[in-house]
Every structure is written in C-alpha cells, then in structure tokens.
Write a protein that binds this DNA or RNA. Structure first.
Length: 564
RNA sequence: GUCCCUGUGGCGCAGCUGGAUAGCGCAACUGCCUCCUAAGCAGUAGGUCCUGUGUUCAAAUCACAGCAGGGACGCCA
C-alpha cells in the first residue's frame, strides 16, 4: 500500500463517513509530504478550520511513528511528515530487489497498439516521428505494467495517391532502379506528379484510371505497384531501424479495402443503420455525433467500412482486451463515429477501443505538405541530429574511438528527438523549427542521459576503490538524500499514471524532476571523498537513481548510456 | 453554422478530478571547472494564468458567454 492511502485511512477514523476528502501535496517541502485542508469539515462543524486542524493534528500525532515522523497544524491545514528514513530504506531496498522491474506490475491484459500508419508513396516525416515515438512509448509502458502487447502497423498501400507516384514513374522514370533510399525515390515521383498535374489536369483522370486498372488486377499495374512498394518498404525498414522501433504485425489496406460490406449489411438488417438515396448510413444523433455514410449509393465501400472490418479482425485474430489507435487529432470525429458504430453493432469489445490522439507537427512556415515536398523527412532530421551529437561528443572527447563515436552520437541524437516529441502533451500542436527545436541542454533527452552517465562514472570509479555496496542503512542520510529517495518512491505511480492517462509525457516530467534533483545532489555532496560508510550509503543511493533513470528511459524508447 | 482541441513571464512548456507565496527549460544578467564529466550547478530579473460574468470559505483549475489560433463536420483517406 502506498503512503497516501495509509494516511487516508488514519484520517478516516476522525472524519464522518459522509464527508469525502483527499490529501494533497503541499506547495513546499518544508510544509510536509501530505496535507489535509480542513475547510470542508469547518463548514460542517461550524468551527474555524484552524481549530479543527489543530485538534486533528493533536489526535494524529504519535499514532504511527514508523509511518509518520510528525503531524502538525499550520493554519487551516494538517500537515503530515513521513518518516523519511524508513521510507528511504524501504524504497532503496525495493529498487535493489526489483532492479529493471522496479515500477512494473502484473496487469496481464492483452493490448493491441496501432501506430505509424504510413502511406507507401513518400518517406516518413516528422509527423510520423511523433506518432511513432508516442506509439512505441505507450507500448513499452503497457508492456512494463505486465500486459502483453501486439504492435501493429497499418500500411496505406493503395488508393489514388499511390497511383500518382506510380503514374509519374511510369511516364518519366525511364524504368530505372532507385539511386537513393527507396521511399525517397518513390516520394520524388509523387511530388513530380503534383507539379506536372498543375499544368496538365488530365493527369488526375489518368491516375483514377490507373486505380481502376489496379482494382481489376491488371498485371502490369500490379507488377509496378509491387515493385515500387517494395522499394518503399526497404526504405521504411531502414528508418524504423534508425528509430529503434519494430512491429509485431502489419495490416495492409490492399488486403481489406473490399471488406466490411457484410458487417454493414447485417447492421442494416438489425436496423442499426438506415438506407437513404441508396447509401447506407449510421444514425449517430443519439450519441451527439453527425450521421455517417457507411456504403456509397453505388455500393462501394469507404474508409470507415474497412475500418469497421479491421477493428473486428483485430479482436478476432488476437484475443485482445483493448485496441489502441495512435492517430492524429484531425481524425477525432472519425474515431468517435467508428467506436459508436461498433457499439451499435453490438460488439462487446467496442468499449476496449481507444483513440490516442495527438496534435500536428507544423513548421515555422506552416503545415507540412508532402505533395509540395515541404515536409521535413524523418531520415533527414535524424542525420542532422546524429551529426550535431557527433560534434558535441567530439568537442568533449577528441580522441574517441570511431565506432564508439558513431554509436553514441546516434543514441544521443535519437534521445533528443524522441524526448522532444514525448515531453509535450499529445493534445498540443508542435511547431518544429529544425534549427532551434532540438537542443541537448535543459529539459532534453541528452540531459537525462547525461545524468545517467555522471552517476555511472561515479560508480565506475568507486568500484576501483571497493565493492559496490549491496545494501546500507539510510540512517546517515541528510536532507538531500531523503529528497532524492522521495522522488524515487514516486516512480511506480508515475508509470501507472502515464498508462492510465495514455501520456508518456508524465514519464518525461518525472525523469526531469529526478535528474534535476540528482544533478543538484552530486554537485553539492561529495560521494567518493566521503568517509567509508557515508560514501557507501551515497553510492547505494546513486545506484538506485541510476536504475530508475534506466527504467524510465526504456519506457520512452531511449537508451541510457554509460559515458557521454 | 455546428462540434472538438489549444490559449500560463520575450519564446517553449508543466500545473487543470478547486486549496497555502503560480513551477520548469530556453533566451538575458551574476557567479562557479587546482574538487566524482560545465550536455552541469547556484543566483538575479521577468507573469492582467486570453477577456468577462458566475459558482465557492477558496478559481490557472469548475460553469456560462465572448475573443484568438488550430482541426473536423453523411457518400475523401
């Protein structure tokens, strides 16, 4: 049980059942670890809150000295001071016991998480990087909590936009093989098409015609489609490798764009939907949403039709309890409608669907438009960051081994990018300025990595002096140590909150808190030069901090590194 | 027109299931590398928490009405 719950139980003994209350965290450390404001009680008892706080504090004082060091009243608040030494000892022991599993749980759900969702006519861009960072991190968080995760990638590999790059290649590509990364090669034809189509609008019709041929299974078109897609996939794989992400399963829209009709027809029979002017429509007014056309008047399917099919397929193929979609906020309404429709169809699992929505990544000049080639591509930004990181590392270690430099600059650059994408609340749009947005200082991934490296360095040096202590008493801990231990204690809660709110940003904030306190700590407090038992206690504490930083970073898909 | 999201010091953000002087990073200014990595630490300056009204003992936080920016809105994906 956590400390907050224990305090609530203590308080409950003095507060009538019918009054709801909660404890808070005071604005300042010196005011205690938890606080209980007495205003509500004051109203009920018609006494001043100051007096009530005073009485309550007196009653609670000395009740459980192992839990509480002291309880006092300050104005209208009862302030609780935890027994920090006991707390510290317990927390550090727990971390050493559970190691890389500290903060984990055994939730045992099966959860599917869909993210990335690329189109096969252009390279992945910054928007995808945000999507992938969030999807990958949330997968790691749920997995850490004991759930089994299926990471899926829905590939948008068909449609008129795909045909556009195909058509451009067919007309002006001279049948040549890629002379660059495959997705970039194909992407250039997509841009080329848009340019040419400005002068020759009839090209749009040609692309439509090509789509029709594709749907009829025209051998030549299909062969071209397969060839170009394979180039793109090769490119994507390279990018995913650079980002250190992977998928357990791929779904292809080309496999399912025809399906979903039967489900809609059934829904029509059950009168969940209605027909109007030939089209089948889902009525959603009762749930406060606009109605949605499910099948066109000409009988053809729409995006939502296959989405219904795919949603069901996911639950059919995998015994999952939850299905999470990491998709941009411009599709908020679409997913509200989709989930409402699934409920209308009577699927029990519909309530297990969740749209993890995130805002746009824009550039200082405005929106990224792949048609116009104004996107910032994932690979380009990664290479820039790797180069920048390399430069920074070289400044500090001029004689560093080439291979080590290569690896480390990738880890640092990637940390900067992922952390930047994850620390900002997903609901917000981001303006990404390639020149300014990514820094290695302040609230950044590299800052967290740096803290980890500093600790590692201290521990390395200590091992030359003596064995790393396995366990020590926290009796000689001062204020700074106790403050650190208090933050360490909050890690499991941070992970749980990140999961329940679908917010990896909570992990980022937690790590920044921990690292700020840690940096301040070893700056002020000598570790290696302290006397034996005090040194051991501090080393022990730092090894725990190091472990928690590692655990936290791994939830963000960021590598904790030993040297920087 | 309707719906959703966002609006906090110059800039980027946290805090939003109401509570004690509104936090952090960047930028600016001061200090700190003979001392465990200065990707750091300590400090100074800087704020009508978009506006108004309301609810409440108490509002950045809740409600309503506006304003500003972004997004979406039955046969696109």
């Amino acid at each position: 049980m956590d400390y907050e719950s224990e305090i609530i139980i203590l308080l409950r003994q003095h507060i009538p059942e019918d009054i709801e209350f909660k404890v808070e965290i005071p604005p300042e450390k010196k005011l205690g670890d938890f606080a209980f404001p007495c205003f509500a009680l004051a109203k009920q008892r018609k006494k001043s809150p100051q007096l009530i706080a005073h009485d309550l504090a007196a009653k609670l004082s000395g009740i459980d000295p192992l839990l509480l060091e002291k309880v006092n009243a300050q104005g209208p608040y009862v302030n609780f001071f935890l027994n920090k030494k006991k707390l510290s000892a317990e927390v550090l022991h727990k971390i050493q016991e559970h190691r890389e599993n500290y903060g984990s749980q055994k939730q045992e759900q099966k959860i599917m998480i869909e993210f990335s969702s690329p189109n096969t006519n252009k390279p992945l861009h910054l928007g995808h990087v945000r999507n992938i960072s969030i999807g990958d991190s949330i997968s790691r968080i749920f997995s850490f909590l004991g759930n089994s995760i299926v990471k899926v990638c829905l590939v948008n590999d068909r449609g008129v936009h795909i045909c556009k790059s195909m058509l451009a290649y067919k007309k002006w590509g001279h049948n040549k093989n890629p002379d660059k990364k495959g997705d970039f090669f194909v992407g250039e034809f997509y841009v080329l098409f848009a340019k040419k189509a400005e002068q020759h609008p009839e090209l749009e019709q040609e692309a439509q015609d090509m789509l029709r041929l594709w749907e009829r299974g025209d051998k030549e078109v299909i062969a071209l489609w397969k060839k170009m897609n394979s180039w793109v996939y090769e490119g994507f794989d390279e990018t995913y490798t650079k980002l250190v992400v992977s998928f357990d399963k791929y779904y292809y829209e080309s496999d399912m764009y025809k399906f979903g009709k039967e489900i809609v027809q059934e829904g029509l029979k059950k009168e969940a939907f209605y027909k109007k002017e030939g089209a089948i429509i889902a009525p959603l007014e009762d749930v406060g949403l606009p109605d949605k056309v499910l099948i066109r008047a000409d009988g053809t399917t729409l995006y939502i039709t296959q989405d219904i099919y795919l949603a069901k397929k996911k639950f059919d193929e995998h015994p999952v309890e939850r299905s999470i979609y990491v998709v941009g906020s411009e599709q908020n309404l679409h997913f509200q409608q989709l989930f409402a429709i699934l409920k209308k169809l009577g699927y029990k699992w519909a309530s297990g669907c969740y749209h993890l929505s995130y805002g746009m990544v824009n550039l200082p000049e405005g929106k990224m438009k792949s048609r116009e080639g104004t996107t910032v591509d994932a690979d380009t930004i990664l290479e820039e960051l790797f180069a920048l990181a390399k430069e920074e590392i070289h400044k500090r270690h001029s004689e560093i081994n080439h291979v080590v430099l290569q690896n480390r600059s990738r880890q640092v650059g990637l940390a900067a990018l992922k952390f930047h994408m994850l620390k900002i609340d997903a609901a917000k749009d981001i303006v990404y300025n390639p020149k300014e947005s990514i820094s290695f200082e302040g609230e950044t991934g590299p800052y967290v990595q740096y803290t980890h490296a500093r600790i590692s360095s201290i521990l390395r040096k200590s091992c030359q002096l003596s064995e790393l202590p396995k366990e020590v008493s926290s009796l000689n801990f001062g204020e700074k140590e106790l403050a650190l231990a208090t933050i360490l204690e909050k890690f499991p809660k941070a992970v749980e909150d990140a999961a329940s709110h679908y917010k990896p940003s909570y992990i980022c904030r937690y790590l920044l808190d921990l690292c700020q306190e840690t940096n301040s700590y070893y700056h002020e407090i000598p570790v290696l030069k302290a006397e034996d038992d005090i040194r051991d206690a501090r080393l022990y504490l730092l090894s725990c901090v190091k472990q928690v930083i590692q655990n936290g970073l791994s939830l963000l898909g960021i590598q904790a590194i030993e040297e920087m």
